[in-house]
Amino acid sequence: MNDKQLDKVRKGDFLLLPHYMKWVAVFPVLCGIVLFFFKEYQHFLNEEVATGMAGHLILLGFLFIIISRDKFPDERLLNLRHKAMAYAFMYGMILVIVTPFLNFLLSSLFRSGSQLDFMDYGMLSIFLFQIMYLINYWRFKQEL
């Protein structure tokens, strides 16, 4: 690594995309949501592939939102970003541990509609991890 790369790692803003990517990322999220809710009305993909693709589009969009820089990035926001990441990681770990129990509980609660089959639990865990990160980051920005 050269000095410039080391400096980026030290400041913690490596691997972040430009700010405008936050707005670009809204597009796959919206496409994913539209595809998920209107999958019955399209004839290009079968329903199973459409739901999987919708889930992946939403996850991809959220990932871009998460790893995009803020409008005015500074050390406080990077600090908060790391804190939110740590919180989301802890919640994510807990979620992975309780998933077998959650699976049993949810399947017995929603058996009739089977609405929760739209994502496998791996995708659901990642989705919740992303949501937890975004909520925590937003909360920290308001409070700290």
């Binding site: 005015f72 500074d74 050390e75 406080r76 926001l77 700290l144």
Partner: peptide, 22 residues
Amino acid sequence: IGVSRQTINSIEKNRYVPSTVL
């Protein structure tokens, strides 16, 4: 000093401790 106004506000209200550089 090249930070956001919110950062200055947080420092003044003792909610954020700045780095040595800042």
